[in-house]
Design a protein around this nucleic acid. Structure first.
Lengths: 204, 204
DNA sequence: ACTCTCATTGAACGTGTGTTCAATGTCAAC
DNA sequence: GTTGACATTGAACACACGTTCAATGAGAGT
């Protein structure tokens, strides 16, 4: 029984939330128009009335996820307080890593999109921007390190250091998702500290 | 025109090679039974005669890839020679990273399988084993480091250190594939060296 | 009341897929 | 030469998916 029900923005949001529920449960492989429509309690035709195509739904869902669920890096903007810059950076890495491990479904979904982005330019651009923002969260601490030890980090930019931190976390995520029993991210973090910090500085 | 042509093992290998060609070109999303059959110059029926299903083909292709194209870690078994253990490990990481960057298609395909493995237990096990072997390549150097600095790496196992190395490389791979213009793995490697090595030890 | 707009439906279409299977040709054995 | 085993074919089937569209009904404006 057709009829008016909700203005466009609300309907779109309902559908996007349903799409996220489906994707979190069945991943992108199980994200079909019919499945989302059923989950949202609407018809499949309505879905393509609000989103021009499945492609559009995928892009808008990623957009929605990046805006709603991936946390911003604002927590990391705190001043270094009294900690050494290297320990500051490690603390940021540790917090990000812990946060990532708590939302495994979301990270798996993100990797689905990552793979999709390999062939899909629009999604690729979205994921790129998200990872750039992610890396930016490390930049203040990274910059403090380089400023504190200019001769040691000659030729190394804050972006390079942030990229290495991001690589470490992403690698930890891939290994944790694939092999949660054998790979322990907490031990990896402790190992990184032992690698980077001089022995005397290891307090924690 | 049907008829005998080749014994089973040869036909299977022909088909697997064709499957790899298709997958390297069009990824797992483009790997259909018909596409592989056409590439191999056989009928689709024959493909399912030699492989029980598409699932079987996928698993056997991954098996074949891991046996034929992913290089073993034997190159890394060389003795430490006169280098310091930390530099030895970094050299192994650097070589592995360089090797990975040279075979982008293969790595992308591997990530396709990684995502597939999230839902497919058999593939998951295969990829797990492959990554374990990958990590093992770092263990000799990792062990040498821990043996050389027992107090600094108290509570850290060689496996932990190897896992961190693997995480770094995998993270570099994901960033390079997604954003080759902005992420420079060579700079990341130099950054890692600056992070880990004491200033005086940076020779290269 | 009447009309007009448009959100909404669900059946239908086309396509691509994995899979099946009866028919067929080739080879080896006897 | 005949037989039997079997690799090989390609048409056909069933299914799921994205997409289209004529029909429908609810609300807004007058």
């Amino acid at each position: 029984m057709p009829g008016h029900k909700a203005p466009e923005a609300i309907r779109r949001d309902e559908i996007l939330r349903a799409a996220y529920r489906v994707a979190a449960r069945d991943r992108l492989g199980g994200l079909t128009i019919r499945a989302v429509a059923t989950e949202a309690g609407v018809s499949s035709g309505l879905l393509l009335f609000h989103f021009e195509s499945k492609d559009g739904l995928l892009v808008d869902l990623l957009d929605w996820m990046l805006a709603h669920t991936i946390v911003a890096g604002e927590l990391h903007r705190r001043p270094p307080s009294d900690a050494q810059p290297v320990q500051w950076l490690l603390a940021v890495v540790e917090r990000d890593l812990a946060h990532l491990l708590k939302q495994r479904e979301r990270v798996e979904l993100f990797y689905d999109y990552w793979v999709l982005g390999t062939r899909h330019p629009v999604i690729r651009r979205l994921i790129r921007r998200a990872l750039h923002r992610y890396r930016d969260a490390f930049r203040p601490a990274a910059h403090a390190i380089i400023a504190a030890y200019p001769e040691r980090y000659r030729g190394v930019s804050a972006d390079d250091l942030a990229g290495v931190c991001a690589a470490f976390i992403e690698g930890c995520a891939t290994q944790t998702i694939l092999d949660p029993t054998r790979f322990d991210a907490v031990r990896a973090m402790a190992t990184l500290q032992a690698l980077v910090l001089p022995p005397a500085a290891v307090v924690s």
